[in-house]
Design a protein around this nucleic acid. Structure first.
Lengths: 239, 239
DNA sequence: GTCCGTCTTGCAGAAACCCGCAAATTTTCT
DNA sequence: AGAAAATTTGCGGGTTTCTGCAAGACGGAC
């Protein structure tokens, strides 16, 4: 068995290396990459079926890397090992995991044991292991109790990118009014209307405020924005 | 001599501890805190004059912590040790460093030697040490060659918070039109007008797009937004 | 002082945004 | 299939944003 580690930070990388060695004695080789691009390359060359991946690396995003790896070999097992449980990340991961694939999401703040257990469960038993904190988000975001539907999330990304109503309508094949409807739902759910500190006359620019709140609530983050921007460019070049 | 380490990540914390021990043999005690709040407390209790501080910690921000520490003892020497050189961080730090104080800004990607050298320069020699990458940003942002004036940055934060033109005018004591002038300057400098992929009819919502671009260029980030939101709440409660 | 540049302000109009109302359409459920 | 619920769409109008034009205001340079 071979394991590929994709991780920015040298300290974390060697810590992971150690953890893999100790949790998986049957592993005869550990590969390391320090950014997403190198990770993809190594995975391709070595036909790696077992990957531990950091999200948020400066050069190339972990989610991007995971996506291309999974596109080439959908049965690859990937353990995401991340600092944060932002909804933006969780959503980003759920969107790309192929049906039936085994994967995991463990926070860096988890204990040694938890990490090692996750490594064995995923790589040996092919089970999915999702940290409790992360799991909570996933439930909430998919079962739309408090969470957002896909269309609301879509329109959120669109205004975060700075598109006009008209542009969104074109992109999503909707009428202008429908877009505005979705925006209204979004504003409602994000609770944009609260007049800060019961100061009556302080109103917000709803559109901009929605993005702000989404950021503060970690529905959005840099990496999500980056991905959205790339998708937009794609769509744009395809007319 | 005592040194206080404020750092989220246990791995990085112990690495720092080691570095301090080896670079500063005259240091007889190393204190550790794992978030900004605890850091402030320890600094206060121990009258620490030498601090190594991580920016971006989940609980309480490094910049916030540094600010209160410096408010209580402006001669404290602080070395900021950060993953990123976002302009938002650099700007945030420059804004709070007291006149004449010795401080440093070193990236986590720097070598062992660089870190140790910085530790000695700042704590022993009272010199300022700023990483080259960071320095570049600082130049650009202060000397307003390509950078932004304070008023432009202010208005950028304000729209990022989701304020209306009117609200900004009230907050900054300007007329509506002046606010809009500054917005125009901002749009100009951020190059918001470029029609994506020479597609003529795709225009952006300038206000939202400006924020997006600022994020992508790292003029803004989560922590800056968080601070701005807190400032806004302050201002609001003071009518 | 005068001149020049930058910043501020008002006015006005085009475009975009926000939203209530109501009809048409699609989806979901029984 | 038929009813209920959710979505989509058009219309209309009130508000906000964006911008050109032009008239002061402030400050520094000569």
């Amino acid at each position: 068995m071979k394991v590929l580690i994709v991780e920015d930070d040298p300290l974390h990388r060697s810590y992971l290396h150690e953890a893999v060695r100790s949790a998986l004695p049957e592993c005869e080789q550990v590969l390391e990459a320090d950014n997403g691009g190198a990770g993809e390359k190594l995975a391709r060359e070595n036909k790696s079926a077992h990957v531990v991946m950091d999200l948020q690396m400066s050069a190339r995003n972990g989610i991007e890397a995971a996506r291309t790896i999974w596109k080439e070999r959908p049965d690859t097992r990937i353990l995401f090992w991340s600092n944060y449980a932002d909804e933006a990340y969780v959503r980003g991961v759920s969107r790309i995991v192929p049906p039936g694939a085994a994967y995991g999401y463990v926070l860096k703040s988890a204990s040694d044991d938890r990490l090692k257990l996750a490594l064995r469960s995923i790589f040996i038993e092919s089970q999915c292991v999702i940290d409790r904190e992360v799991r909570g988000l996933q439930q909430k975001s998919l079962g739309h109790a408090n969470g957002f539907t896909d269309s609301e999330y879509e329109v959120l990304m669109d205004i975060a990118l700075g598109l006009t109503d008209r542009a969104i309508a074109k992109r999503r094949n909707l009428s202008l009014r429908s877009v505005q409807n979705r925006l209204q739902q979004l504003y409602e759910k994000l609770d944009v209307y609260q007049p800060m500190n019961d100061n009556e006359e302080s109103r917000f620019n709803l559109r901009a405020r929605a993005v702000t709140i989404a950021f503060l609530r970690k529905l959005l983050n840099y990496s999500a924005l980056e991905r959205a921007e790339a998708e937009l460019a794609d769509w744009h070049s395809g007319r």
